[in-house]
Design a protein around this nucleic acid. Structure first.
Length: 457
RNA sequence: GCCGGGAUGGCCGAGUGGCAAGGCGCACGCCUGGAAAGCGUGUUCCCUCACGGGAUCGAGGGUUCAAAUCCCUCUCCCGGCGCCA
């Protein structure tokens, strides 16, 4: 959320940001409501001032035993009360409208962010680990076919049990998920992160604190009731990312300067409805309703957030460097920045099987496995998270950042495809072997059940 | 789930209808050869260029000229009982 004062004093900056982000909000209306509110507020303050004076006079008069004068003052006070009620009711309405409107204003992009209309104008910053790629089979099999063939991914049974868009990881596939999670947590722990295992249901108020709500309710899983119905601030939703509980961990708190920078990492499953997202680009486990992810969340001093942003990117990249998976870094342009973000990088891993139009020249495609964002004070203001530099100073909003480190299923896709061997087995990346009981290759499992009888392989 | 007790500033803590005590911490000043101690000032948010004013005692509503204080609803915490993987 932008501060009222900032919007009031920098309307042109806000207007430009709205345009660059492609957001349509009636800024003039907000400015007008703010001005009217301030007028009413100062009128109300004056009335209240008078009432306070009358009120304390009543106390004095009563104590002095002057009942007649006291009665007169009480009548005056009653008049003021009625007048005050009028003014304040109107002021409260305006303030509520103002607050609601401010919640819908997006973060201002950082000055350094390239201006662009949509994702086609994002800027590729660099590619890593492409100098010495593995020898791949002539035809790399897509992860969904290979995964089923190896008996480590189950889609039909997941659809039976839970519905479309879910998957079972089985046997060595399940081991791979666990291994990746533990491996990532170890890497980030070395980088100074403290582990958090959060509650999976989060209240609406928390979704608002990180900026998912009020605009984006349709993608969340609501625990009770329908998404179309109005919600209360303590209604529960399944978390779409651990960013929500972890950032809200310190909601309405004041941290001390010695606490900062504060680096948390959280493994959690993530739940997203992904309405309407079906097709060849999302086959398999590329876009599912539930997936594992390790998320890094940082709380920092405002002056440190730029530097921490680059550090966070490097911390996420470290996972791919150790897994030896080729990837690229993409910087989002203004039009592709999310609602809450001032600046954002995506890390996209190379998945060589399916050739996609937007993929690299050598074939395959890019899969976003991490999104590293600087929210500056946008979330901190919504969630009211502050810090105090010196104990006697007043508190100010700190900066929050986060980055996935990383999304597990898409890493599974990259491993199944990039580490694929001509015989249909998959080599386990060396860094991961200690987490897989020393396993060097994923060779899969025999099928289970009647459906296995007619299969010819 | 039932019964009881709670929620006051960065922290502790008094306050049961009439301007929210006191202590700790922190900062600055005085004092001192220097320090400690001591003394003084400051230490929430909003409006205002400022002077100043307003709000604030878990949240929301009510009673009253006036609510931290009385009444109602809710949230969370603590204790006891019950149930439970």
């Amino acid at each position: 959320m932008l501060s009222r004062q900032f919007v009031r004093e920098n309307p042109e900056t806000v207007r430009e940001a709205l345009q660059n982000k492609g957001v349509d909000v009636d800024l003039d209306r907000i400015l007008k409501v703010d001005e009217e509110w301030r007028e009413l507020k100062s009128r109300g303050d004056d009335l209240r001032h008078e009432r306070n004076e009358v009120s304390s006079r009543i106390g004095e008069l009563k104590q002095a035993g002057d009942e007649a004068a006291a009665q007169e003052a009480i009548e005056r006070s009653q008049e003021l009360k009625a007048e005050l009620q009028d003014v304040e009711e109107r002021a409260d309405e305006l303030e509520a409208e103002l607050e609601a409107a401010l919640l819908e204003l997006p973060q201002i992009p950082d000055e350094s962010v390239p201006v662009g209309a949509d994702e086609s104008e994002n800027v590729e910053r660099r590619r890593e680990l492409f100098d010495d790629v593995r020898d791949l089979p002539t035809d790399v099999e897509p992860h969904y076919d290979l995964g089923e063939k190896l008996g480590i991914l189950e889609f039909d049974r997941a659809a039976k049990v839970s519905g479309g868009g879910f998957y079972f990881a089985m046997g060595q596939g399940a081991q791979l998920e666990h291994a990746l999670v533990q491996f990532m947590l170890d890497v980030h722990r070395e980088q100074g992160y403290r582990d958090v295992f959060p509650p999976l249901p989060v209240a609406s108020r928390s979704m608002e604190g990180t900026g998912q709500f009020p605009k984006f309710t349709e993608d969340a899983y609501r625990i009770e009731g329908s998404n179309d119905e109005p919600y209360d601030e303590d209604d529960l939703w399944l978390l779409p990312t651990a960013e929500v509980p972890v950032t809200n961990l310190h909601r309405e708190e004041i941290l001390l300067s010695e606490d900062l920078p504060l680096k948390y990492q959280a493994y959690s499953p993530n739940f997203r409805q992904e309405a309407g997202e079906h097709g060849t680009e999302t086959r398999g486990i590329v876009r599912v309703h539930q997936f594992n992810k390790v998320e890094m969340v940082n709380f920092v001093r405002p002056e440190e957030s730029d530097e921490r942003f680059e550090g966070l990117l490097d911390e996420a990249e470290e996972v791919l460097r150790r897994l030896e998976l080729p990837y690229r870094i993409l910087e989002m342009c203004t039009g592709d920045l999310g609602f809450t973000q001032a600046k954002k990088y995506d890390i996209e891993v190379w998945a060589p099987a399916d050739d996609m139009p937007e993929g690299p020249d050598r074939g395959g495609r890019w899969l976003e496995v991490s999104s590293v964002s600087n929210f500056e004070d946008f979330q901190a203001r919504r969630a009211d998270i502050k810090y105090r530099e010196e104990h006697h100073e007043s508190a100010e909003h700190l900066h929050t950042l986060n980055g996935s480190g990383l999304a597990v299923p898409r890493i599974v896709v990259a491993i199944l495809e990039y580490y694929q061997n001509p015989d249909g087995t998959v080599t386990v990346p060396e860094a991961l072997r200690p987490y897989m009981g020393g396993m060097e290759r994923i060779e899969g499992h025999d099928p289970v059940g009647e459906s296995a009888l007619g299969s010819d392989d």
